[in-house]
Each structure stands twice: as structure tokens, then as C-alpha cells.
Design a protein around this nucleic acid. Structure first.
Lengths: 148, 148
DNA sequence: GCAATCAGGACCCGATTGGTACGGATTGCA
DNA sequence: TGCAATCCGTACCAATCGGGTCCTGATTGC
């Protein structure tokens, strides 16, 4: 389905929540889990990945927690996707990488998806997490409105 | 990894091969399998899906086979992806659909990915299968060139 | 009537993902 | 100095999904 993982979804939620509470302080993983309604271990996992990618900064210790490494407006969606789902490439053969495919010599699609990957990267690079956060979370569905 | 399925990849190969041999005649699934180097049952499966989506037309019987329903230039990539991978939506919650998510009321991301989905649809709608077929299948990789 | 082909479904195996658990390191505070 | 709270890294397990195969029918031409 051309889908990306749930973890990426969670990451956006957590990042959005982190910015809302941004007053210079930090938020703990358990606190974020309670605020988002997600499972605590899952939130911790997401935060660890984001920390590894440099999108959030973790501070250890008794008064530790997480805070954003930079404002969400300066955080392109591609960074989050790349951090959690890996490099943005629609097929297993990333761009023109060599040595991964067993039927490399006869593979009829080598390099063929490159323009598609580029198109998607361009489309996504213009969207920041702040753009997603700006969307109202609950949007009335046309069917529901029509049914009323 | 934001990946789409291998089947979609195969579909592009098969469609491209179908157009090359387009002289008004048809190509059989076993023939296409031999021509593309893919497994025969797999090719048959792809063709069945494409036929169901109306992208190719199957003709049964002794002299049966498949032919393109329309030229590849008039076949947007989104049609093939939608036929094989389903509707283009990055998350499980397709757009603003209701009733699928269990934690619907508290879900903090409902409708949030819509602009992303739209951006990807726009980026992909401008690409036809003919555009992909036009890309040379074998492209020298920069690393390989540098290593020589 | 027979052979060749498409059509549709069921099935199984492997891979990936989501989610969990555990031990260790770091920091603040009493 | 010890304790508690927190992050960090890794390993692990269960469930889902996709790739691939097979079988049985329906249709067509010879």
C-alpha cells in the first residue's frame, strides 16, 4: 500500500507533543506516553531512534528527558522517515546500488525507479513536521457530514 | 522503507514487454515469463491483477493471451500502484476514513497525513509507465565508475 | 473432443514489523 | 556517598503481511 511504518506515525505525534511543551524544559518518555496515549515502551523506542538520528536530544539522569534538537519548522518530513523507515526508495534496489540483487545482470528494472524516487523525495522535502502539526487532528469526514 | 511491493515492479516490466511486442497480437503468460526472466506463476498472478484492474485485456482459449488495454503513455503510474498495492495512502488510516481504528476518538494523527498523501499523489500522477520504460535499464553506478 | 490458455481462489513459507524486556550508564539530590 | 530516576543499547518474541506456488474451473480455436 505504499505505506510507511506506524513508528513514523508515532514519531510525528511525539515530536508535535514535544514542541507544544517546549519552554526550555524536557519531557520524559513516560510523560510523553501518557500525553499521547501510546504505550510507554513504544514511545521510548521511538525517542531512542529519533535521538540517534539527532532529531531530539536526550538528557540522562534524575531530571532528564527529551527536547527537540531544532524547531519542527526546520525539520523536514524526510528526516523523520529516513530515521525510522530508512532511506526513501520505493524498491528494494536502492537507486543504482549494486551487489544486492541476485539476478542483477538480467534484472530488467535496474535504475528504472530512480525518477519516481526523485519525484517523491521532492514532494516530501517541501513538507516539515510543523506543516503536519498544523493540520487539525480531528477533521469531519464528508460521509459523516452528509449523513447528518 | 516507504517501499512498494515487488509485484508492482514486475508489473512495470511486464507492461513494458507487452508494449514492445505490440503488433496487434497477444502475448501469453508463459511467453512473458520467459521474456522477462520472472517466474511463470508470478507473471500469471501479476497479469491477472492487471487484467482485473483493466490495464490489460486477457483473451482466453487456445490462441489467447494478453494485450495492453491502452498505450503506456496514457497509463499513469498511480493506476498500476493502485491496482497492485491498493489505494495510495501512507498510513493504515486512509485519509479520513472512520471506523477502522480502535482508538479513533483519541488518535492524535487522524487526518494529519492527508497533505502528504496528496503531495505524493501529485508527484506520481505526472509519471506514466512509458516514462519508466524510457529509462535505460542498466545505468552505470557512480561507485563502479570511480572504481575503474 | 482435445489442447491451450486465462480466471479465480486457497494455501504455505519466509521476512518484516510492532511491541516487550532486560541490564547498564548517567545524572541530580538527599 | 548512596539512592532514585532517567536515558541507552541490545536482544527477543509474537503477529502480520507479502511473495510465491498450486489446483480447479471456464473459455476458445483447431
Amino acid at each position: 500500500m505504499l505505506r510507511l511504518s506506524k513508528l513514523t506515525d508515532y514519531a510525528v505525534v511525539v515530536l508535535t507533543r514535544l514542541e507544544e511543551a517546549e519552554d526550555g524544559g524536557v519531557l520524559t518518555a513516560p510523560g510523553l506516553a501518557a500525553a499521547t496515549g501510546l504505550g510507554e515502551p513504544t514511545v521510548a523506542k521511538v525517542l531512542k531512534i529519533l535521538s540517534h538520528a539527532g532529531l531530539v536530544e536526550g538528557r540522562r539522569g534524575a531530571a532528564g528527558g527529551y527536547r527537540l534538537a531544532r524547531p519542527l519548522a526546520e525539520m523536514p518530513l524526510t528526516d523523520v522517515i529516513a530515521a525510522i523507515d530508512g532511506p526513501i526508495a520505493l524498491t528494494a534496489c536502492v537507486d543504482n546500488s549494486i551487489g544486492l540483487c541476485d539476478a542483477e545482470a538480467t534484472c530488467p528494472v535496474r535504475g528504472r525507479w530512480d525518477p519516481v524516487n526523485d519525484a517523491i523525495r521532492r514532494a516530501l522535502s517541501g513538507i516539515s513536521i510543523a506543516d503536519l502539526a498544523r493540520v487539525p487532528a480531528i477533521v469531519p469526514h464528508p460521509d459523516v457530514v452528509a449523513a447528518e
